[in-house]
Each structure stands twice: as C-alpha cells, then as structure tokens.
Simulated assay, not measured.
Amino acid sequence: MADAFAAIVAAGEHDAPLQVCQVAVDALPFDGASITTMTDSHRQEPVCATNEAARRITELQFELGEGPDLDAHESGRPVHVLDLAELGEHHWPLFGHAVGGELARTLHALPLNTDGASLGTLCFHSATLEHLAVQDVANARRTADIATWAVLGVIAQEAPQQEIDRLQGRLQCWVKLHQAIGVISAQMQVEIETALTCLRAHAFVCDRRLSDVAHDVVIGTLRFDDGR
C-alpha cells in the first residue's frame, strides 16, 4: 500500500482520491469506499466512490442529514460501526433503516483532518461482518491521511471552470440538488438550511429519492410556495 500511495500522490492526477480508495479496498477487508468533502450536514460534495453501494451510502447521508460521515466530520474522530443491525432506534434511525443491511453491515468513517479541522470524510463499508485486525485499522487511518493529501492536491490543481465542468459531468445529480435548494429558498424566502430541510422532508414523506424530488423542483413541476 505504501508504494502504491506514494506513486499516486507523486503523479497528482485528477482521480487520485479514487485511486487511493481503490488501493485500500483491494488491500483491506472492505467492499467499497467513498470520499466526501463537507463543511456541515447541509454542505456536502461527493468526491468519488468505488462502487454503487458506496455512492448510495453517501447519498443517503446527505438525504437524511445523519450518519457516520457526519459524526466523524463533526467530531474529528473515526466512527466505527461494527454492525448496523445493532444501532437501535436512537442512533441514525432513518439512515440505519434505509441502509437496512442490504447496502452494508459495517461502516468505518474517518475524518480527513488538516490543520486541526476536518475537510470531509473517507468512508469504508463491508456487506459482511468482517473483523478488522489492529493493522487493518492502522492502514485504514493511514489511507485517510493519504486521501486528505490527494483531495487537497485536486483542489489546488483545479481552476474554477475545471471545477464547474467536473461537477456538471461526474456529479450532475448533486448540481441539481444544489439548484433545487436555491429554488426552494427563493420560493419560500428562507435560508438555504431551511430549504434543504423542506426538500428532505418532502422526499421522506413521499418515499422518493432526494435527487428525483430535486429534479421536479428544477423543472418546475413541484413548488414549495403557494403556487405548488
């Protein structure tokens, strides 16, 4: 892993964060991994995911406003969930129910710490109850350190227009989410945080994916004011 990580950081390519995740997944007892940058539960941006399950786990945490990534980011400490089935109803009840053991049984969220603050998180998942050896935990945390440098490297390289192109291409659904939040904020004349809460609530009550509700808002078939 050390040699592979060194080569990735030295090359400094745009998909370096994804390469870091893939190396770790290949070497450690995980089924997938994702990286998300964030400032709080209202402002998250997915950077990469190694598979669809990892991508959906990231999406669910944004949709529901709860989960291990958010706790790891806020606390600045790793969050290890050894068995999602044992979470109970009082800790991430919506997220635990949504994942339901189908996407993952274990989750390991590690903050991307830099200069005393968290840039975001690296989240590993497993579909089975894999036992992590002490060395596996150490390597997972080492991966988070490397991922931090990889993400910072991408941010430093990207010009504003390159960032826009990247978001519109690889992260189109998230661009639409942000557009929808802005539309709702203007319609209801509320803060962005309140607009996101309303979007989440509507998706939950109607049992729909947040991205689908956001699409309806953007094209104008769903409104959050008196014109709906």
Score class of each variant (00 low, 15 high):
R43Q: 13
Q135W: 05
V9P: 07
G65T: 05
G220H: 12
H202P: 09
V154K: 10
G76T: 00
V81K: 00
L28T: 03
H97E: 13
H125R: 04
G153P: 06
H80C: 05
M188G: 01
C198L: 03
C206V: 04
P111Q: 12
E130Q: 07
D145Q: 15
E86R: 14
A2Q: 15
I57G: 03
H131S: 13
E89C: 07
E89I: 05
L129I: 04
V175K: 08
V99Y: 13
Q187Y: 07
E45Y: 13
G153M: 07
A180L: 03
L196M: 14
T221E: 12
L87D: 02
Q168K: 14
A54V: 12
D31W: 02
N113S: 15
P68C: 14
L94E: 11
H73E: 09
R228I: 03
F5N: 10
D15F: 03
W174G: 08
A117H: 04
A201F: 01
D212F: 10
S75L: 08
T58A: 08
L199K: 06
H125P: 02
F62N: 01
R223I: 00
R141A: 02
L152K: 15
R55S: 15
A138N: 08
T39S: 01
A85L: 14
H80I: 10
P29Y: 00
H91A: 05
L199F: 10
A4K: 15
Q172Y: 02
L112D: 07
L177F: 00
G220P: 09
E59G: 04
A72T: 07
H90M: 11
G96C: 09
G100C: 07
A85M: 13
A104S: 15
G67W: 11
G227S: 11
E13L: 12
T36F: 10
R200E: 09
G101S: 05
V218W: 00
Q44H: 06
D115R: 10
K176E: 08
